[in-house]
Amino acid sequence: MTTLALNRQPSAAWLGTLTRSREFSVFLALAILVTATVAANPRFLSAQSTKDLLLNSSILVILAVGQAIVIVTKNVDLSVGSVLGLTAFATGKIFIALPDLPVIAMLAIGIGLGALLGAVNGALIAVAKVPSLVVTLGTLYIFRGVDFAWAQGQQINPSNLPESFLALGSGAVLGLPYLALIALAVVIAFGLYLRNYRSGREFYAIGSDVLAARLYGIGVGRKVFTAFAISGALAGLAGVIYAAKYGNLDATAGQGLELNVVAAAVVGGVAIAGGVGTVYGAAIGAVLLTTITSALPVLGVSPFWQRAMIGALILASIALDRYLALRTERRLRGHDKHAG
């Protein structure tokens, strides 16, 4: 409603652009949710619970950024949950073998391992030219199978992990948890890259119109490959973080997570049809989904409604996207008529 009122006033044009943006509508939904929850229980925004909210959403935010980049190219990566599980377990195994490994080195190993798994997806999709939905559904099974075969029911306990590593999972600087800072850095870095760099904008070109992108000289296959490698690398990073945050883990870590990740991106305005959306939107979508899980118990809503509400939110988001797209189209058409 605000958007309609504001976009008629030229003086507030920047405000109009901001409020009309898709990210704003997700942000508004998040703000309403938080306000309602705080009204029900002021402790929802206490220092401790704000820290909890940030910590809880950091893993999903990182995964949603990778997923957004993949979806923008008109693909989808369903294997992220399995990649996360495999790298989380690998993290535990590596620390058991090398207890003195610096935390930063472990993060690098996780990113590298994730990128490798993502590259497997990317290679199959770009080189063998097969649909990403099917390939990543296949690697969802395969990576999880490798994880199970490796783990054989073993469990990693906090006592297997170095203190400094576990501190990464719960520690904070100036009230901001490390994990939230890592997630924020990932969001900003990829946000700037996609918006301001030519190679970043090429992802959108592929998603909007692959033939035009090819005519324009963009190496489509290489670009799609890169998108999957990035998604894998971020899932790898998320896997290491998962290990730091939970300490206790087995081969089932991250099972079923892919659905939430895709949902976060879609809710954040990244269009499944490709070419539209930003990592900022996906990140806010991820925070929104996590906050719902935390807010429902506080609001006294039966936990059984939670999943149904996430489903309804996805449907509302894509319907909203469709509406906004149609409105833009109509406005552009109207404009053309005036010109002609």
């Binding site: 402790r43 619970s49 909890d52 809880n56 996590t290 899980t293 935390s294 429902l296 118990p297 506080v298």
Partner: peptide, 9 residues
């Protein structure tokens, strides 16, 4: 997350 909500409530 359930524990956190429990403590807030």
């Amino acid at each position: 997350q359930e524990v956190q909500a429990l403590l807030q409530q």
